[in-house]
């Protein structure tokens, strides 16, 4: 019984230690960001592997989610004779919630896990160590460009997800189910506010981008430098990102839309 309590206590201490470690790591990243102004090419290279390579999965998922939303919402709305509000319903759910959240989850599966694995393997094969011995700070050279690429890519990817999703629901709603073309767009413009809905969605995606990239680079940098350690770290990245994004989404939604 005492052992059991002791184990819980130690597990708790470990969690706090890790959180503290991760926070210090984050601060180190933040103060090192100016290094990118001197080496912008590092960032471009990472934007390619983080952003460009995530494009396909984001566009395809966005389109599919938009089409499914269009179909499902239409079936509900048509019962009340309000199928004209398909546009705003789909646009609001995408711009406010599904765009940022699903993009962050897909991002952690596609780019976040790759970042963790890459950094973890560099650590396991002494590439980070050798950089240190060459008087090159691996935090600045390896971690910061990857982190910033994630932070920059996420809002862009989320915007693309929402935009493509709305086009998908347009194809289904207007193209196949016969919702009026004009009503679809004009109702959407009537209901979706740039300053509240779109802007809040963008803020969400920026916050998610910061969290997802932070988790990914930290897990990689902190991975046990063995094959098993890196594969565990990769799994942790995806799981922790999912928890973090969903938790943050609830908090942000409560702050942004709670008073309506």
């Amino acid at each position: 019984m005492l052992d059991w309590l002791q184990n819980i206590g130690q597990a708790g201490l470990r969690v706090f230690q890790r959180l503290g470690h991760a926070t210090l790591f984050m601060l180190q990243i933040l103060v090192s960001i100016p290094v990118l102004f001197r080496h912008p090419r590092l960032l471009i290279h990472e934007l390619y592997s983080v952003g460009v390579l995530s494009l396909a999965i984001i566009v395809i998922s966005g389109l599919t989610v938009g089409m499914v939303l269009g179909l499902q919402m239409y079936n509900t709305l048509v019962d009340f004779g309000t199928e004209d509000s398909l546009g705003p319903v789909v646009a609001l759910s995408l711009v406010r919630e599904l765009g940022p959240v699903l993009t962050a989850l897909l991002f952690s599966g596609r780019a976040g896990s790759a970042l963790t694995a890459e950094i973890g393997l560099m650590k396991a094969t002494d590439q980070l160590s050798v950089m240190e011995m060459m008087a090159v700070d691996p935090l600045k050279r390896v971690v910061v460009p990857r982190y910033m690429a994630g932070v920059i890519s996420m809002p862009l990817l989320a915007a693309m997800f929402s935009a493509v999703g709305i086009l998908g629901s347009y194809m289904v709603g207007v193209g196949m189910l016969g919702v009026d073309d004009g009503a679809f767009w004009s109702q959407m413009q009537d209901k979706v506010m740039l300053d509240e809905d779109v802007l809040n969605g963008v803020i969400k995606s920026i916050v998610f981008g910061m969290a997802a990239s932070w988790i990914a680079v930290f897990e990689g940098y902190d991975a046990v430098p063995t094959t098993e350690g890196v594969s565990r770290a990769t799994t942790r990245t995806v799981v922790h990102t999912a928890f973090a994004v969903l938790g943050l989404d609830f908090v942000l939604t409560a702050i942004m839309f709670g008073d309506q």
Binding site: D126, Q127, S129, V130, M133
Partner: peptide, 11 residues
Amino acid sequence: GMLFQSGALFT
């Protein structure tokens, strides 16, 4: 300069 056992080339 340090030569690592694994070589540690940037892959």
